[in-house]
Design a protein around this nucleic acid. Structure first.
Lengths: 199, 199
DNA sequence: ACCTGAACACCGTTCAAGT
DNA sequence: ACCTGAACACCGTTCAAGT
């Protein structure tokens, strides 16, 4: 059992409590009272620092993610190509210093590019964003190709395919999900990536 | 306002109540008491026929879906497996008698499951929808497996992977796109599907 | 077997009251 | 500003009791 670090203020105790609860396997969901109890804080105090459960989640998740995904080298040849590619895609999914949250990102994106009839300008803007995503993925594929880890074929087509998978996963991040979301996400990425690599 | 059909037994009244509640726009989620009230039945009776909310959801969704979708054509052995699977996925992407368009569907879905704080009920509702999608894809995979067209492996995992791809494509349908969208869509589907099938 | 409705153990949020 | 804890309006599930 984890001991609570000493000397933390209430807000950090709450974050610590929520993070450790999340780290306790499936079924260990965040409830107000559980988090408050572990943080040794009242529910009122919890609500003072985090007005809704979503606000709490949005504060905790980036912390948990950053603990898991640190490395960022697609060039690191000591790591198997498939792991590097998966890690790269995961970073696209949840950028390094992201203050943005998947839900808000989706709301903004939908309002901007779907709700209103897109003007020429917003349309171009979205297509540019999409191209940038494709560019990043194609770059990663290029690195792996130079190592000979990639079978012959159309990398542009593969990049479009991977962008689709990443997009599908980012939807899953914004919509409700089971507690096993992160595990499913990794599984799907490996399934998608293994197809492209030589075995 | 819908009138309840006469002459239904309790179980069917419950199913009718749940189905009509699902059809009532954002914010109308399934709770035990709401369904029981509309069905003019006690919560205990509801629980007698459907021991959990999940059981209720899993009973209602196929009914709602079957009102929209007809046969998948997944059994037609005169067509190559990959083409049948791609066709089935394409049908999930744009249902046969669909009156709604991708853009509107996305707006409704985002409003219902992302914009507003998801309650336990709307959350359960979305997860049940997702399960129904998985169920249908797993069914298609099962048919192909019986024909020996599928390599050994975890079909549940494959279904999650295909759901992700389909979701990614449905996003592309709602957001701005180049005019080559349809071609890209088919390309991506074949790329995703070919991985799963024996060659 | 089918049904009732109270009771139980939760949930997230609000708020008057304290420091 | 920070914190408390009771109260509120929900939720899904259980169960003794009826028909």
């Amino acid at each position: 059992m984890n001991e609570m670090p000493v000397g933390l203020n209430s807000r950090d105790r709450i974050l610590w409590a929520a993070a450790t609860l999340l780290g306790e396997g499936p079924g260990a969901a965040l409830s107000v009272r559980k988090v408050a109890a572990r943080a040794e804080v009242s529910t009122g105090s919890l609500r003072h620092h985090f007005p809704t459960q979503r606000a709490l989640m949005d504060a905790v998740l980036p912390i948990v993610y950053d603990l898991v995904f640190t490395d960022d080298g697609i060039h690191d040849a000591t790591i198997p190509p498939r792991d590097r590619l998966v890690a790269a895609l995961q970073r696209l999914l949840a950028p390094e210093g992201a203050k943005t949250k998947p839900r808000e990102d989706w709301l903004v994106a939908v309002d901007r590019y779907v709700r209103t009839e897109p003007t020429r300008a917003t349309r171009a803007e979205y297509l540019a964003l999409e191209r940038e995503l494709l560019r990043r993925i194609e770059f990663c594929l290029g690195v792996l190709r130079e190592e000979g880890a990639l079978a012959g074929g159309d990398d542009a087509r593969r990049a479009r395919y991977l962008v689709t998978v990443v997009t599908g996963l980012s939807v899953a991040q914004a919509f409700p999900a089971e507690d096993t979301r992160l595990q499913t996400e990794i599984e799907v990425l490996y399934t998608a990536v293994d197809y492209l690599l030589k075995q």
